[in-house]
Write a protein that binds this DNA or RNA. Sequence first.
DNA 1: GCCGTGGTTAAGGCAGTGATAAGCCCGCCT
DNA 2: AGGCGGGCTTATCACTGCCTTAACCACGGC
Lengths: 234, 234
Amino acid sequence: MAEVLIIEDDDRIRPLLVRGLRECGHTVTSAPTGMSGLQLAVDSRPDLVVLDLGLPDVDGTQVLSMLRAVSQVPVIIASARADDPSLVGALDAGADDYVVKPFTSTQLDARIRAVLRRVDAGRQRPSTITVGGLAVDLAGRRVHLDGNELDLTPREFDLLAHLAERPGEVVTKRDLLVEVWRQPWGGSDKTVDVHLSWLRRKLGETAAAPRYLTTVRGVGVRLAAPVPETGQDG
Amino acid sequence: MAEVLIIEDDDRIRPLLVRGLRECGHTVTSAPTGMSGLQLAVDSRPDLVVLDLGLPDVDGTQVLSMLRAVSQVPVIIASARADDPSLVGALDAGADDYVVKPFTSTQLDARIRAVLRRVDAGRQRPSTITVGGLAVDLAGRRVHLDGNELDLTPREFDLLAHLAERPGEVVTKRDLLVEVWRQPWGGSDKTVDVHLSWLRRKLGETAAAPRYLTTVRGVGVRLAAPVPETGQDG
DNA sequence: GCCGTGGTTAAGGCAGTGATAAGCCCGCCT
DNA sequence: AGGCGGGCTTATCACTGCCTTAACCACGGC
């Protein structure tokens, strides 16, 4: 069904949850601490995170805040705290649901499906995006420009795909480093510049005369259909 | 915050919920039976429905099914039944969340906000503001004036965007320095003046004959749709 | 008539960007 | 196991163009 990450320190509960959700058909990974869970969430990009509030290293609410800073992944809080302030605080910090221990994997599975159903309803995306004469096949990882297939490196494709998913929208280099390069904490903007340069070359354009890739100085870059040439210019 | 419909038969609980949610800032309507609630949901198109499972006329799950047949409105089940089958059945029937009575309006409000946040995230908002013949695309950072695209510098765009987000409202230079320039500690008002001047030039207007950007002496500046020329003036 | 606020233009400094080259790492082929 | 090549990153340098500061002018209020 979905890839689920469980962040839970209790060595008795964690295996139970992993096992229960696997029996429900999910692909499950797990982490025993907040920081390792955060790491996994960034690296493996799960479809949903089940987060315990009572973690040994960092408070669950803080983990949630940090996670929200870099990802929109749905989060279900699993906590022993049944009081309103804990619940309200967690939901307002960006959680999607809150279940109080003890609970069955059946219930957790039902809540997971409810959250994912709502999330999926928002984004039904076609597997191939067309922007002007540019066709990006996300599933097949192929790109065609005016009918001719382009030979892109993995990074080049990921970069182009990310931009193609937001046509006409300006994306910052910082966002690209986070989303494409998966480096929320570091990395150099220059790397993005270089890849953009190569991408432009393969798209048959230059930075000085952009067609699809327009850089917005001081902000980022935008992918949009080129404006048809008006013929003779001034 | 949102328009909420409460479907609940208990004459003691219903007013409590209505009152509690109104205190949280929601607009609330309510119905005591499944069929009247269904009617209201169709007629008044609320942003969210709180549905009791134990209704006198029709079972709550059936109400949910009928509602889902005609609407994608988010539904939070409020029920006295704490057993897993009821919860799983309701969620699988299309509910977004499930709270077990008794619960506080604080908790219900938090869950409402969590559900609505996720729903709103799915909608792609039209991120373009139109003021008269001026169209400001916030996400794409493009500006069109009477159909022609304007070439604005980053600061010019930020300035215009900030004003466009508050059409008709006078904004002080101090506010602009804080919000656009991100300099709460200092900075010269003259900088704003200079950028306003450039912006006016690109908008095809002068300070003496303003169309979109009107300065209010001693206060600040306002962006508003121009008043059509009446021909000869007084 | 003076002062303060606002408008415009000019100029210099600097930050962000573009392109290329070199180094490194990893996988593949022999 | 060693060589090889493609791809990614980092570094360097030149350049464009934006932002700020400064100076001067116009206007309205007191």
